[in-house]
Amino acid sequence: MTEKHALAQQIKRWANELGFQACGITKPDLSQHESQLQAWLDAGYHGEMQYMAEHGMLRARPAELHPGTLSVISVRMDYLPKQAGFATNLADPSQAYISRYALGRDYHKLLRNRLKQLGEKIAQLSSDYNGRPFVDSAPILERPLAQQAGIGWTGKHSLILAEDAGSWFFLGELLVNIDLPVDPPHQGDCGSCVACITSCPTGAIVAPYVVDSRRCISYLTIELKEAIPEEFRPLMGNRIYGCDDCQLVCPVNRAASLSAESDFQRRPQWQDQSLLALFQWDEATFLKHTEGSAIRRIGHERWRRNLAVALGNAPYQPEITTVLSTALTSASPLVAEHINWALQQQKQKGWQQANLLPRATERLVRIIQKGLPRDA
């Protein structure tokens, strides 16, 4: 075994010790993905995420992001919490559904710190080491790199899939100036399965491997800063931060193991929370409960915007109308628009409910009468 092969094996052992479930090595060449990236941008699928377009092809050129890069170390860290509560949250439209990656601590700092530690270990064996960690916060195509490094294959929902973890994991990269032996690319695929495509509530997966962000509930609840288009509001259900539907139906995810990482476990404030309770958080309460959480990035205004939509989708409750009407007096124009929409939805459901009972009663009486003797 050569010295570089030995170093590559040592790096993978260190990665495992630092809590990464998989580690692979590839070269920083993503030239074959440039045309696909450009086509995605040209179609406008990035929506308001202007940072995707601003960096252009830099995303496919890691060596330009960190000059001197000769190898990319790609890592995977599983995040599926032990108390995910999928069925409970989605089955009860009065409860809030939050994407499972956001139930614990914000992963960006955790992964970056672990990658930094990995770099420090490498530096102990290589005096001229120069590396830079990336965790979903810089212009780099991490998913193609992960597939090239053998971490997994690209699913039709555009997420990376691994046999033993499905897609419930975070990715990170360490760009280094060491020419390391590479791992073979992952050759897996989804075959004829289209579960993710057919189950997407808003039809965001417009073609295999192509997601129109403008239709994606994760984009609508997290990235979009303006009003949520009315056509998507009824389809969002009780999803107030992100969406996991394409992952929930993926058969590969059935084999996913639960994360042992304490920082990724569900925080108490997200356990069985009603939409009404969360909507009534003032900004101070919101900031307190989202400290160290990825959820904080959307801010209190968009938090209430998302919850207003979910309350509009919830079953009719007089209390919902009362709370929304009270909040309307001090709401920002953005939130007020969504409150008014929600009030209209609740009003319509209330009217239907009020008229449904008398009709049902009349129908029951007619059925009874038909079965009674003439002189009854």
Rank of each mutant, 00 (worst) to 15 (best):
L103E: 02
G68N: 13
Q95G: 03
V135L: 10
R304E: 01
S218V: 00
Q317S: 11
M49L: 08
V72Y: 07
P268N: 03
I367Y: 08
F232K: 01
A256E: 00
L328K: 14
I368G: 09
H33Y: 10
G155Y: 02
G44H: 02
Q344F: 02
I73G: 07
R215P: 12
H108D: 07
F279G: 00
K82M: 05
E226S: 13
Q147R: 12
P93T: 03
A123H: 12
Q348K: 08
R266I: 02
L80T: 04
M52E: 04
R112Q: 10
R59Y: 06
S99T: 06
C243I: 07
K12V: 03
Q124K: 11
R215W: 14
F279V: 03
E48Q: 04
V75L: 05
V309K: 11
G188Y: 13
A60W: 05
Y209L: 13
W281R: 08
V365N: 12
I197H: 14
E337T: 14
L125G: 08
P93W: 04
S71R: 00
R143S: 11
E54D: 12
Q10D: 15
V182C: 15
R214D: 12
A22N: 06
R215K: 14
G166R: 09
N253K: 15
F170A: 11
Q124L: 15
A138C: 13
G188V: 05
I178F: 00
A260H: 12
D244V: 13
C23E: 07
K370Y: 11
R13W: 05
W14M: 02
K27C: 03
T361V: 13
G203R: 09
R105C: 02
G350V: 09
P62K: 04
L287Q: 10
P67Y: 09
P268I: 04
E17H: 02
A360P: 15
R254H: 11
D212L: 09
H300K: 09
L258M: 12
G44N: 01
L171S: 10
L37S: 01
P93Y: 01
E230G: 04
G350F: 05
A43Y: 00
M1D: 09
L248M: 11
Q32W: 02
A6Q: 14
N130Q: 14
N238S: 09
E223L: 08
G237K: 15
W351K: 15
L278G: 12
N238G: 06
Q10F: 13
Q346T: 05
A314Y: 09
L80K: 08
